[in-house]
Simulated scan of single mutants.
Amino acid sequence: MKHLDRALRVIMLEGEAILNLSTQIDEQFNEVVDCILKTQGRVIVCGMGKSGIIGKKISATLASTGTPSFSMHPGEAFHGDLGMVVKEDIFLAISNSGETDEVIRLLPFLKDNGNTLISMTGNSLSTLAKESKFHVSIAVHQEACPLKLAPTSSTTATLVMGDALAIALMRAREFRPENFA
């Protein structure tokens, strides 16, 4: 197989993952947007590994388009960063499996603190999805990585869903070019 053929296969698989999101998104997406619009707090985006890297981008897009947001590394959370979380904050947790230990460990604190939990997972039956007030599916049929080791299609799907959320919020806030800094 030529390099170009491999590249085209990755593009096709990831494109399919993105298109598949349109069959998974439902009315709960509207509820997520409305919940974020109503909060007086910030959206704290958290994920481990590649999900955390994608979460940083989602948080940056939210912040630059009118939704106060910052990202939090789940490992750093228990070393003082949870002190930044106030009750009014919404916690957006990202985990493809929905079972990432470092993220799951945060659930008791978030519950005791009264935070609204939104999850983005590839598994609607996971611990994270079940413990969330709102769950957004980012499930993919197949990763582009032939060894099934590197998250590829799943991170692309997560990024696109994060962009969809940010743009929906931006439009709802009537955010304009002069607001962008």
Rank of each mutant, 00 (worst) to 15 (best):
148 K>Y: 15
124 S>K: 15
15 G>I: 10
82 L>Q: 05
149 L>E: 06
158 T>L: 10
174 E>M: 14
58 I>V: 10
121 T>M: 07
145 C>M: 12
50 K>F: 00
176 R>S: 13
172 A>G: 06
134 F>Y: 14
143 E>V: 09
20 N>E: 14
128 L>S: 00
39 T>G: 03
58 I>S: 03
110 L>K: 04
51 S>P: 02
154 S>C: 10
136 V>A: 12
171 R>F: 09
82 L>H: 08
167 I>E: 03
142 Q>M: 12
94 I>R: 01
21 L>Q: 05
76 E>C: 03
132 S>A: 10
165 L>S: 01
43 V>F: 00
23 T>V: 11
113 N>D: 05
172 A>T: 04
127 T>P: 00
119 S>L: 04
59 S>T: 07
94 I>Y: 00
22 S>Y: 15
81 D>E: 07
30 N>L: 14
84 M>G: 04
70 F>T: 03
181 A>P: 11
160 V>G: 06
52 G>A: 07
168 A>S: 12
126 S>E: 06
168 A>G: 02
56 K>C: 11
79 H>A: 02
148 K>M: 15
148 K>I: 14
76 E>F: 00
8 L>M: 14
172 A>D: 08
66 G>F: 03
45 V>Q: 01
180 F>C: 06
16 E>W: 09
91 F>N: 00
23 T>W: 10
71 S>N: 11
130 K>L: 14
36 I>P: 04
59 S>E: 04
56 K>S: 07
13 L>G: 05
154 S>A: 10
23 T>D: 15
178 E>A: 13
66 G>V: 05
121 T>K: 04
